[in-house]
Amino acid sequence: MPYRILEKKELAMNEVWYKVHAPHVAKKVQPGQFVIVRAFPNGERIPLTPVTWDREEGWIELVTFVRGKTTMRMANELKPGDELLNVAGPLGNPAPMKKFGKILAIGLIVGIVEVFPIAKAWQEIGNDVTTLHVAPNPMVLLREEFEEAVSRHIVEGFDLQPGWGMNEIAQELVRRAVSRVKELLESEHWDLVFIVGPAGGQKAVFEVVKKYGIPMEADLHPIMVDATGMCGACRVTVGGEVKFACIDGPGFDAYKVDWDELVARTGFYAPMERLALETYLKQLQGKGGEQ
């Protein structure tokens, strides 16, 4: 079932957009749902979020942030006119479409992509939505789109310092997110906080929100393989029960999530992911001038 790439755009900070022909998904997808993409015969199945879609024309737009082998290989090797091998979905449950009142929807780094369709829909049904994007400069994922779609869009950018590794970036991300959220919670009244991003950052922001007692929802991103409820890789403990994020989520009440467990589980394959990326980079170098 090949899915043609209709357009591809590369923006700042390793941000790549793909407009993909996938009518079965376009017809059904709701904000909060995701798809599983497989791009290469020896490739993995990765969850991505449709940002926009057209039910009549049958396409969806996916945005990736290049950080591992698969996203890099997609950015390097796929051209408009090529095909993704698989786009399965839509998967997961739609975000609850209710009138909450005033919502703070936070996206950490590429998590903002997933916030977009949800925040937009919340605003459309009469909520007052503020979105907050915390990310290293110059990442401005979807800035114009957000400005058009919600009441207020805040970008909390930070400059990368020479010599920083992933750890330093993560620490700065958490520091910025926490201080900006604190400021917003202190100065205004909120009915709901929503967050998408790396588990460690989600946890740190939750610790702040908890002090104010504001209801909070989080879309979780544990590792997934099939994403149809079959493998259990994405299991999370919520309210003391084991849930599968793929079919019970991805959205959960942040107050009930076992955050430490989630943080530990999402990091489990990091050394192997690094090995895959390094092997790929070596292959690229080996090819010399070809690239």
């Binding site: 290469f40 020896n42 490739g43 993995e44 199945r45 082998k69 698969t70 393989v225 489990f268 394959y269 192997m272 992911e273 090995l275 895959a276 092997t279 790929y280």
Partner: peptide, 15 residues
């Protein structure tokens, strides 16, 4: 299904 026994030639790892 994902052929993790051939990692990293195949992308999906297993521990």
């Amino acid at each position: 299904l994902m052929k993790a026994y051939r990692f990293p030639e195949y992308d999906t790892p297993v521990y």
